[in-house]
Design a protein around this nucleic acid. Structure first.
Lengths: 134, 134
DNA sequence: TTTTAAATGCAACTCAGTTGCATTTGTTTT
DNA sequence: AAAACAAATGCAACTGAGTTGCATTTAAAA
């Protein structure tokens, strides 16, 4: 399975191929952990407008290029790849030392029991601990 | 097992018994679902100062009267009771219709497998679906 | 009752994220 | 290849959650 280029990603999703988007996608493909707004700005030398970046993140999430992760910091982070949907679940590991967020395979798909009348649609898991670098 | 009063809670935790705190705790004890800053302001007729409320929430959380919950809205919610610690886990149910957050018993304590070098300390679970009222 | 420390209220601030609008760029049509 | 169109960008101003410093009040201790 060949690795897809940023251009191919944009074509496949039917989005315009702009410099900003290609740089963003290339960066996401390089990183093995989730990126915050600030991480991305820094990676792109702070040359990018705030609203442009946020709008691209929103669009990328909508079409499934990236997915948004909510750790406990109150700051959203984004990682490359489809959002975890039913049957394709994965968990997020938050390092308590360096705050880095990684996507990890979710092996045990837990079936929580909920009160009567409640219907479970999906389950999100956040694992907290220390990462390999800390 | 007798139900504890708000005064007793504050005494047990070694906190000063103020009107604001008693009103807050009484409200938390009444509600069966998590409360946001706005929920609490409304419940207290918007008579309370912003910083006072936030400082009390922070203190209550620190001593374990309430625990903070992070759903995906970016707005913190708080629920009565000890925070979920290891051996005392519970999950949070977020209704996708009304955005209400409930604490539910976590029956299956899942053991996610993480990459080599990663150490799991705790696992947080968010269940999404529809609640009994929706 | 006086003293002391902590809780409250107020105002000003920070920081993430959003919105409206003018300009530019990528893509489509002729 | 040029014109036309829609979507993407940049800018500025805004929103809303949460924080901080400081003066005043209140609960608890002496």
């Amino acid at each position: 399975m060949e690795k897809e280029s940023s251009i191919q990603v944009l074509e496949r999703k039917g989005l315009k191929k702009t410099k900003v988007r290609m740089a963003l996608i290339q960066h996401f493909m390089m990183m093995n952990h989730a990126q915050s707004y600030n991480d991305l700005q820094e990676a792109l030398s702070n040359e990018l407008d705030k609203s442009t970046l946020y709008r691209n993140l929103t669009n990328f999430e909508k079409v499934g290029i990236i997915h948004r992760i909510n750790d406990d910091t109150g700051v959203s982070k984004y990682a490359f790849g489809e959002p975890p949907i039913h049957g394709n679940e994965h968990a997020h590991f938050v390092c308590e030392d360096c705050e880095t967020v990684y996507c990890v395979e979710e092996l045990v798909p837990l079936q929580p029991n909920v009160p009567k009348g409640f219907k479970t649609k999906k389950v999100q898991t956040i694992i907290r601990g220390t990462c390999a670098d800390c």
